[in-house]
Computed example of a mutant assay.
Amino acid sequence: MSLAKWKEREREQRQNDIIDAARKLLIDRDFDEVSMDEIAREVGLGKSTLYLYFKNKESLYFAIVLRGIRIWDKMIKEGVEKGNTGLEKFIAYGNANREFSTKYPDYFRLLYSPTSIKKQFDMDKMNSSEEFQEVRGLFKEIMSVGIDSIQKGIEDGEIRQDIDPVEAAILLSVIFNGKVNMGDWAKEMLENRGINEEKFNSDIGDLFLHMLKK
Rank of each mutant, 00 (worst) to 15 (best):
L3R: 14
W6V: 15
K7R: 12
E8H: 15
R11L: 08
Q13E: 15
D20P: 02
A22L: 11
A22F: 06
K24V: 04
L25S: 03
L26S: 05
I27H: 02
D28E: 13
E33Q: 13
S35Q: 08
M36S: 10
D37S: 13
D37W: 04
I39F: 02
A40D: 01
A40W: 00
R41P: 01
R41K: 15
E42L: 11
L45Q: 02
G46N: 05
T49L: 12
T49V: 12
Y51N: 06
L60N: 00
I64Y: 10
I64K: 09
G68Q: 12
I69E: 06
R70M: 05
K77V: 08
E78V: 15
E81R: 14
G83C: 04
N84L: 12
N95M: 13
N97I: 01
E99V: 07
F100D: 04
S101G: 00
K103M: 06
P105G: 02
R109S: 09
L110K: 01
L111H: 01
Y112F: 13
S113A: 15
K119H: 11
F121C: 00
M126N: 00
S129R: 10
E130S: 13
E131D: 12
F132Y: 15
F132H: 02
Q133M: 13
Q133P: 04
R136E: 04
M143D: 07
V145K: 07
G146D: 03
D148G: 05
D148S: 11
Q151S: 08
I154H: 05
G157M: 03
I163K: 00
I163Y: 01
P165K: 03
S173Y: 05
F176G: 10
N181S: 12
D184Q: 03
D184F: 01
D184C: 00
K187V: 05
E188I: 03
R193E: 14
R193T: 08
G194T: 12
G194C: 06
N196F: 04
E198N: 00
G205Y: 02
F208G: 11
F208N: 10
K213F: 07
